[in-house]
């Protein structure tokens, strides 16, 4: 083994410094581009929509008059859909990830499933919408109901929750398992007392982030017919519904300029909900993360 130390001459050094500066400049511009676009978007939405944002906007139903239009039906629809999506996707998602990580034999079939899960996470949401339309709406006869919408959205975010939960479970140090086994614990005892407590922050963070993707999701629920006018509060999960992003989309395509402003006001509400959900994810991660 030769271990020759090459001392660069001054020319080489200055060239390296230039390269470094160039790289720094490029990355800075890349960041700046994103920031400027985002800032423009937010400033535009706020300057356009803030005038329509008041209590009436939250408590009125949609209307043909922009000044009377509100998001009550859409907001309630989003909450109802989420009330189905959250339990279904959490139970199925966490269950799947525990099975895959803890119980499933490590063979080709398991790897095949895991590969497919990762792929499913990248499938366009319209495809899930078509699936929901065929299976839930038509085949199972749920109609264009909150139930069908909630289940479709669960399917949509399930792969992401499974992948995030699997990562969280996998990051638990092997020593923890060994210690538990040494105490004579069964698999279920380990899952209950070691795996779940340690993985919960990671699971919840992943779940909330994918749920906030679900809240902003439009295409899949558009497919199952959530673009509707409703002037009543849903009373059961079999009622028709509409959701915030679709209501915004519907307003944005109107000819009247005032409706563009109403759409912007709706976007502000949606943005606030998303920011709240993402902050919750950060709080949970910081508060409950365990360091080994």
């Amino acid at each position: 083994m030769k271990n020759k130390v090459v001392v660069p001459d001054e020319k080489q050094i200055s060239r390296r410094i230039t390269k470094n500066k160039l790289a720094q400049g490029i990355f800075f511009l890349a960041t700046l581009f994103g920031m400027v676009v985002l800032a423009t978007l937010i400033i535009r939405i706020f300057s356009q929509g803030i005038g329509y944002l008041n209590i009436d906007f939250l408590t009125n139903y949609a209307s043909r008059r922009p000044e009377d239009a509100g998001i009550k039906a859409a907001l309630l629809g989003t909450i109802w859909v989420m009330s189905i999506t959250i339990p279904v996707s959490l139970i199925l998602g966490v269950g799947t990830s525990i099975y895959l990580e803890e119980y499933a034999p490590k063979n080709k079939f398991t790897r095949f499933i895991e590969l497919n899960l990762a792929n499913l996470a990248g499938v366009p949401s319209v495809v899930f919408g078509l699936l929901g339309l065929t299976v839930f709406v038509r085949l199972l006869g749920m109609g264009r109901s909150i139930l069908a919408g909630g289940l479709t959205m669960s399917l949509l975010i399930l792969p992401v929750i499974v992948v995030a939960s699997k990562e969280a479970i996998r990051s638990i140090p092997q020593e923890q398992y060994e210690a538990a086994y040494a105490m004579g614990a069964t698999k279920w005892q380990i899952i209950r007392t070691v795996v779940l407590p340690a993985a919960t922050p990671g699971i919840l963070t992943g779940a909330i982030l994918s749920l906030s993707r679900g809240v902003g999701e439009t295409a899949s629920l558009l497919m199952i017919g959530a673009m509707t006018f409703i002037a009543y509060t849903p009373t059961s999960i079999l009622d028709s519904f509409t959701i915030l992003p679709i209501q915004i989309f519907s307003w944005a395509s109107r000819p009247q300029a005032e409706f563009q402003a109403v759409a912007a006001a709706g976007s502000i509400v949606l943005l606030i909900i998303l920011i709240l959900m993402n902050s919750l994810a950060i709080v949970i991660r910081n508060k409950y993360s365990k360091r080994y």
């Binding site: 309630l76 909450i79 109802w80 989420m82 009330s83 189905i84 959250i86 339990p87 959490l90 919960t200 922050p201 919840l204 779940a207 909330i208 749920l211 509060t233 849903p234 009373t235 919750l280 949970i284 508060k287 409950y288």
Partner: peptide
């Protein structure tokens, strides 16, 4: 932390 998640879910029942 679980109850936070459940709280989100529970919100959904309010409209009833």
């Amino acid at each position: 932390s679980l109850s936070v998640a459940l709280l989100l879910a529970a919100c959904g029942n309010e409209p009833t």
